[in-house]
Nucleic acid binder design. Structure first.
Lengths: 332, 332
DNA sequence: CTGTTAGCGCATTCAA
DNA sequence: TTGAATGCGCTAACAG
């Protein structure tokens, strides 16, 4: 029967008639080896189907050519897009990605990141609800790290979307359409982006006399949007700012089911511009968070950290306002 | 300044006043260690914040506690769900997941799987378009492996949804509504699930006199569904079977934009039951492929392989027919 | 029950 | 330019 164990560097050395250090050097393209010899070694390696054991290399080199990514919820389209952008960018640079969906163990982000960090060269953290202090305490222990969608931190590259600016644009859009009494379906209040949205709301009501924004607690998914329909109706508003597209879609669906016309009776805005936001009925007005671009940039920052390139600064992207048909002039 | 290098097993040994092996044994819960001593060791480890270097362990143990997952396209909701189900199940068993989105390098699945396999304990392969022979040649080289959504292979656990059975149900549903001339928007013909769908169509037309199913080449995404509207209209059918929900949604959207009423003028079915299929207007009739369950089961199979449990057989799930409002009685 | 010794597979000093 | 020796950090024989 054939060999059951993979060929090692020793096998190649023997076949090529050289020492294992020469094999190592040849395989790594070290220029201090005689070209002819290098060829011979490579031929031997090819013949044996030899490839250096990455685990052994990792041990001696101290790097794994892999980064960890911790994501709060793989079911969320935005996080999926971040992961996708990051994953592809990392692959293009020859890096692998170890993922972790923390959905189950909320609050375990710290321990998880620490665990993952040990098998990888760095960690990209997407942890919107991790407490500020915990994050601050965690970061130094897992460096190099890059953080997504959190306020800039000292010594840690951050890539984020400007949720506050986007929320302001959404509000301006609604205000421009004549809406003066607006509902805000808040999602995770404790999240960084949630705080940014809230701040934008406060600023907007301060800026515009007569503008009222009523906060209605809701969740972050489709169902919570639907569940909020009663509260929205009762609040007697002409428009609703949903925490995200999922919530907006739930609200839109529930409103339609109730015979409330959107945007004639009620304008609705989303947030994120997930893939299906353009295909609801009516299509959703929203703020386009460039999620996969965030992932790409997070990788760029990590790659810089890993290669010792210039210390990447914090990188913030402003979501674009996407006006579709779920918003229209205020009626009342 | 503080120590810049992590504590090693030697540091713990010194602090606890024991040998390396005792530390190793104590940390691994080896019962042949005096309980009191074990406590002392653990205390020392805790004091130093020591944790065994996973890379070194991997090298000596020959296992990484990690599995690779290769996914064709992270932008596809079905694959996302598979990954999510798998990832969470693996995490529950203390395993990590290395992912690879092969989108960019189609056809590179083999090389990629091989590369990833070397840093992990096994690979879960989701490669619908990989040629049968290539797959067969690849599998033995990356074992242990489990394959998702492909016909059962010898010696390799397979978990798959029965696309053929689901397609049959969809057709029966349409036939029962009186549809006799139906369009089929084919996606990736070369894929395993594509072949299964096609076979179901052939069987159905053979079973039912007067039933015609016209194949219209299309893609696998939203846009390709929309692009097929002309062909569908020209084909003079009363119903259309879309390759998947994305295509169905694109077609639905284009149809609606053209003033074609669904399901009054045209019935449309999807496939997969992605999260948004229930929220289109009208909601989509489709076949629910239990994607995250597939991921979960793929993990179960892999875990069995890894732990030497009973050889997992091939596991096939039949998608449930979900009748919503995009299908109705045939008019003509 | 505990310590000593030998590798896991490779990259890299150091000599030659 | 090449080879021999050393060690990355840890586990697992093997003695004691």
């Amino acid at each position: 029967m054939a060999r059951s164990t993979r060929p090692g560097i020793t096998d190649v050395a023997r076949l090529a008639g050289v020492s294992l250090s020469t094999v190592s050097r040849a395989m790594n393209g070290n220029p201090t080896v005689d070209p002819a010899l290098a060829e011979r070694v490579k031929a031997a390696a090819a013949e044996l189907g030899y490839t250096a054991n990455p685990v052994a290399r990792s041990l001696v080199l101290g790097r794994t050519q892999t980064v960890s990514v911790v994501i709060p919820d793989l079911a969320n389209p935005t996080f999926q897009a971040i992961l996708r952008g990051l994953s592809r960018a990392a692959a293009a640079d020859g890096y692998h990605v170890l993922i972790s969906d923390t959905a189950e163990q909320v609050g375990e982000e710290g321990a998880l990141a620490t665990t993952m960090r040990r098998r990888t060269d760095g960690v990209v953290l997407c942890a919107p609800r991790l407490a500020r202090e915990e994050l601050a305490a965690l970061l130094p222990t897992v460096a190099p790290a890059v953080v997504i969608n959190r306020p800039p931190q000292a010594d840690v590259p951050t890539v984020a979307a400007d949720y506050g600016a986007a929320m302001s644009r959404l509000i301006e859009h609604l205000h421009g359409l004549g809406h003066r009494r607006i509902a805000y379906l808040s999602g995770v209040v404790a999240s960084a982006s949630g705080a940014a949205r809230k701040a934008a709301i406060t600023a907007a009501t301060a800026d515009h006399d007569g503008l009222e924004i009523i906060e209605i607690p809701a969740g972050v998914d489709f169902d919570s949007g639907g569940a909020a329909i009663d509260a929205v109706v009762d609040s007697d508003v002409t428009a609703a700012l949903a925490f995200n597209d999922l919530v907006a879609m739930g609200l839109l669906s529930a409103a339609t089911a109730r015979g409330i016309r959107v945007p004639d009776d009620l304008s609705i805005t989303g947030f994120d511009d997930i893939p299906f936001a353009a295909y609801t009925t009516p299509p959703l007005t929203t703020a386009a968070v460039p999620a996969s671009e965030l992932g790409r940039r997070a990788w760029a920052a990590m790659h810089a950290l890993l290669t010792g390139t210039e210390p990447p600064a914090s990188d913030v992207l402003t979501p674009e306002l996407i006006i579709r048909d779920s918003t229209g002039p205020a009626v009342r």
